[in-house]
């Protein structure tokens, strides 16, 4: 059960990331506009794109799910901040914002599901050692 949920969320996150980073790397007009509004065009666009790629890869590799999820959580946190403070929610931006929130929520759930692998926190969630 946990495994299936985890895989669905991981694939969902990775697919959204690969899709949007395609627009970022090819310099799609919408993407360029958004990053111009944030005043970090073009280097910020490329940097975020690279981070999304890394996150998508990490999240698909079983041993590194939590690291990918932390990265995704952070990137989407930034995206939400961007929408709330600069970009706003008009037109296409609303659906982009909702997509960002969806990925952020998915990353959060992944972190909860894989909490026993979290760096710094995992020992809290380990089952007590039985013997020997």
């Amino acid at each position: 059960m946990k495994n299936i949920a985890s895989w669905i969320l991981r694939i969902f996150t990775a697919v959204i990331f690969t899709q949007t980073l395609y627009f970022k790397f090819t310099g799609h007009q919408d993407s360029v506009e958004i990053f111009s509004a944030l005043k970090i065009e073009p280097s910020g666009r490329i940097l975020i794109g690279i981070l999304e790629l890394v996150s998508a890869i990490l999240i698909l590799v079983p041993g590194t799910v939590v690291y990918g999820a932390i990265l995704a959580w952070g990137i989407m946190g930034g995206a939400i901040i961007g929408h709330c403070t600069v970009i706003g929610f008009e037109g296409d931006n609303l659906s982009l914002f909702l997509l960002g929130v969806a990925v952020w929520v998915s990353a959060t759930i992944l972190l909860v599901l894989h909490r026993d692998q979290l760096p710094l926190l995992r020992h809290m969630f380990e089952k007590p050692n039985s013997s020997s």
């Binding site: 910020g44 959580w73 952070g74 946190g77 930034g78 600069v86």
Partner: peptide
Amino acid sequence: LSFYFHFFTVAFLF
């Protein structure tokens, strides 16, 4: 100042 500072915002939030 610059949107780049938000990299630190999310890191410290975490």
